[in-house]
Write a protein that binds this DNA or RNA. Structure first.
Length: 816
RNA sequence: GCCCGAGUGGCGGAAUGGUAUACGCAGCAGACUCAAAAUCUGCCGGCUUCACGGCCUUAAGAGUUCGAGUCUCUUCUCGGGCACCA
């Protein structure tokens, strides 16, 4: 008994990784696939630190699913790539004094090493990086598709500007109104920027979310998208300005409360402010507008909720009451939402109530709740619409329910020509301009004669020049503008000396279409080949983090819809199924560099092997909820693999093979196959692994190492521990990869025992158990139960009032 | 503030309204060993009992039900998202 090999993960893993590479095991036939399955995971941003445990958890979970689908007979395409443009790479390069173009390839090499080490089923010939000209050529092409369809436009927009770092900051880089890096107070700067008209698609983006045939998504993700889209139903109402021809249009979701509108508020930037302002108020209004303009975006939005504002001196007429009401300006009204103006109903809106209280404006009750009437004082805004209240102080509408008056009043306004019903979305257009260096240049040329001109397709890509001074400067203009040889270029239409657009595009654009490129990486003349696309898309399963629940997924859906409308794709939803994985925490806290609790997976893979580490990660908690990383627990999965290894050793030994499968093993075997199959399908990996462990325990107790059973056990461990399973499979005498073997099937009749043990309750308390035939009827069960001393002692001397018999489940006596 | 999600042994976590605590970790006892590690066997929610057993227990409280970790309401705590959206 000398030649028995022991389980040595590192040797086995290197062996199988090399073999997969040599034999192209992970590369499906992209053209000839008959049962294609596109298994997508969110590609990583290749940071200098390398993959962390959270990435590995996500990729392993997606890989387990892909390997499972493959064993179910699909040709699985499970590509990986790198999302390497963006401000993070650029800032890091500035910090370490290097160029991102040299850092990124190093990071990608390190990520590639780690992704190979973990044993992912990645087709490396289809790898992509968003920073390669061969990729971003098509990102620019995507931009131009939108430009040509009128969906890309320029407008002024405010950005966060740090005067000390001389750079535009993203919202998350602004902390409490200050620059996250240097602490300077951030200013708002207005720049002309490129936007995509995603708002045109708001309704379709919302409606498809409820269409299960197009999208089977996690509920939490659907909810997040719905909230982001923020559909509301209401009305536009026009108020004429007293003593003038001007009119102010407001948007409200509560047209029923129109009689309670006692003043109006415009956003400080509203175009009618000048016209409304009286001479007396002009100075105060000017001062307030200047003050509002100076506030940075974030502190205006989420900062101090204390109301501020100024009276313009102007008045408007409430179309319902005919009364003149004062018009104010205040920064709690946002120019970007609705019409930038509101009718203020302080009795029934918390913000308006706070404002009216602060500035002593009249508050009128127009809805009376249960037990209230028109004169009940309002200590706070009464905002309930559907709480059984009735209208009061509202003329002909008095006594009716607010919900009913909502539509009735809107209809009346429509008749008067002073209002219309309208649906409003919270979603705003997608700003894709970045005044930075490390991104794909926006492919537009400005010609004095021809205006903004698209760079012709045959001149794409507009390559990002490899310049050394890529730092942003004081001007707020992209560093690209400083390079005359790049900046000046002939107009593609008339040939006149023209200027390139110097903004680069948002990284979210890079990732909004990458899934279309993966099956087409070898094509240089098209972004995506129609035949390939028809075979592989839409994506069958997409797994990723819920931090991208809104932006990335919404932008991807939008770009797909646009390309669908352009006739280039025959589907409008890119991801048939989406599941969000959970988060790995360490000691109850999210892993982060600042907390110093980031776990580097390399050392674990080195010490335990990738297979044990993968199995551990999938076992530590529900995949869709995440879990707590505790290295003490890793020994459990390792012991499990050791036990399977030993069973394989026994199974291939002709001397100790057990030909007969005992009934107890047979049932457990089929039950395990059923459970594992169903649970892996639902990404419930932790319980699937528990089921495999239970099976192993039974096999050991029963001394069974029957070859068929062990073979199938090995197959079921394969998605979790792929190298390990390949090695076991080879030891069992197979010459081809285990991933081309069919997933084990089970016999339903063998998943249920002929005799079952059920609980017997007396008055709902479990008092004993009985073991009876599965099909036993009530009388048999009762006879067995009443013969049990532990049950009968609660029955003697009691009147049995009722017996509840749930066949095959339980028996309950109600006595007393 | 609003919208989601979650609170179960010492720990990670299982449980179609039907025997709560599967599986794993840690711990305790034993076997093997000169010894230790590894491995194997057994025990392992709390209180109570010599024991058989009894009572309690799924964040707290109420409710529905023959029966609730699971369904409903209220409260508390934690995590995530949105944040003056009219």
């Amino acid at each position: 008994m000398s030649e028995t090999p022991t389980y040595e993960p590192n040797a086995i893993e290197a062996k199988w990784q090399a073999r997969w590479q040599e034999q192209g095991t992970n590369e499906p036939d992209l053209d000839g696939a008959t049962r294609p399955y596109y298994n997508l995971m969110m590609f990583p941003y290749p940071s200098a630190e390398g993959l962390h445990v959270g990435n590995l958890f996500a990729f392993t979970g997606a890989d387990v699913f892909g390997r499972f689908k493959r064993m179910q007979g699909y040709q699985v395409f499970e590509p990986i790539g790198f999302d390497a443009f963006g401000i993070h790479s650029e800032n890091y390069a500035i910090k370490v004094g290097a160029h991102p173009a040299t850092l990124i390839p190093q990071n990608i090499a390190n990520f590639t090493r780690q992704l190979t080490r973990m044993g992912g089923m990645f087709p490396w010939r289809n790898v992509l990086s968003t920073t390669e000209p061969s990729y971003y050529k098509w990102t620019q092409w995507v931009f131009l598709q939108l430009f040509k369809r009128g969906l890309a436009y320029k407008k002024n927009g405010a950005v966060n500007w740090c005067p000390s770092c001389k750079t535009v900051l993203s919202n998350e880089q602004v902390v409490a109104g200050a620059c996250e890096r240097c602490g300077s107070v951030v200013e708002a700067r207005v720049l002309e920027q490129w936007y995509f008209r995603i708002t045109d698609y708001a309704e379709r983006l919302l409606n498809n979310l409820d269409d299960r045939s197009k999208m089977d998504w996690s509920d939490t993700t659907v909810m997040a998208q719905k909230n982001w889209l923020g559909r509301s139903e209401g009305a536009d109402i026009t108020f004429t300005v007293a003593g003038g021809d001007a009119a102010i249009t407001v948007y409200t979701t509560r047209p029923d409360t129109l009689f309670g509108a006692t003043f109006m508020v415009l956003a400080p930037e509203h175009p009618l402010v000048d016209a409304l302002t009286s001479d007396v108020q002009r100075d105060a209004v000017q001062a307030y507008r200047a003050q509002a303009a100076a506030k940075d975006l974030t502190s205006r939005k989420i900062g101090d909720k204390e109301k501020s504002g100024v009276f313009t001196g102007g008045h408007a007429i409430n179309p319902a009451t005919g009364k003149q009401i004062p018009v104010w300006i205040a920064d709690y009204v946002l120019m970007e939402y609705g019409t930038g103006a509101i009718m203020a109903v302080p009795g029934h809106d918390e913000r308006d109530f706070a404002f009216a209280t602060k500035f002593a404006l009249p508050i009128v009750r127009v809805v009376a709740g249960p037990g209230e009437d028109a004169s009940t004082p309002l200590a706070e805004a009464f905002t309930e619409v559907d709480a059984g209240g009735v209208m009061v102080n509202s003329g002909d509408f008095d006594g009716r329910a607010p919900l009913d008056v909502k539509s009735a009043l809107t209809a009346w306004l429509e008749g008067e020509g002073s209002g219309t019903k309208r649906v409003q979305y919270r979603l705003y257009d997608w700003c894709i301009s970045r005044q930075r260096y490390w991104g794909p240049p926006i492919p537009i040329i400005y010609c004095d004669d021809c205006g903004p001109v698209a760079v012709p397709d045959d001149q794409l890509p507009v390559e990002l020049p490899l310049i050394d001074d890529f730092r942003p400067d004081d001007s707020g203009v992209s560093p690209l503008a400083r390079h005359a040889e790049w900046y000046f270029t002939p107009c593609p239409t008339c040939g006149k000396k023209s200027r390139r657009e110097t903004d680069v595009s948002d990284t979210f654009l890079d990732s909004a279409w990458y899934f279309l490129r993966y099956p087409n990486t070898e094509f240089n003349d098209v972004a995506f080949d129609p035949a390939r696309t028809k075979t592989w898309l839409p994506v069958d399963s997409y797994i990723g983090g819920n931090e991208h629940a809104v932006l990335h997924l919404l932008y991807s859906r939008f770009i797909t819809m646009v390309l669908h409308d352009a006739g280039m794709l025959d589907f409008e939803e890119p991801f048939k199924k989406f599941r969000a994985h959970g988060l790995i925490v360490k000691d109850g806290a999210k892993m982060s560099k600042s907390k110093g609790n980031v776990v580097n997976p390399d050392q674990y893979m080195e010490h335990w092997g990738a297979d044990t580490f993968r199995t551990y990660l999938m076992f530590l908690g529900p995949f869709q909820e995440g879990g707590d990383f505790r290295d003490a627990g890793i020994s459990g999965p390792r012991r499990f693999l050791d036990k399977v290894w030993d069973l394989v050793t026994q199974a291939i030994d002709p001397d100790c093979r057990d030909a007969e499968i005992r009934h107890e093993v047979l049932i457990k075997w089929h039950q395990s196959k059923k459970r594992v199959t169903e649970e892996v399908e639902q990404l419930r990996y932790n319980t699937a692994i528990a089921a495999l462990m239970e099976l192993v325990n039974v096999l050991r107790e029963q001394n069974c190492a029957e070859r068929t059973v062990i073979s199938e056990l090995v197959q079921m461990t394969a998605p979790f521990a792929p190298h390990f399973a390949e090695e076991c499979w080879e030891r069992l005498g197979h010459a081809t990869t285990i991933f081309d073997s069919p997933w084990p099937t089970f016999d339903h009749d063998l998943t249920v025992e002929n005799t079952i043990t059920i609980g017997v309750q007396v008055n709902g308390k479990t008092r004993g158990t009985i073991t009876i035939a599965r099909e036993a009827d009530e009388s048999v069960a009762r006879a067995a139960a009443e013969a049990e001393e532990s049950v009968s002692k609660y029955l003697t001397g009691q009147e049995i009032r009722k017996v509840i018999w749930v066949p095959g489940r339980m028996l309950n006596y109600v006595v007393g």
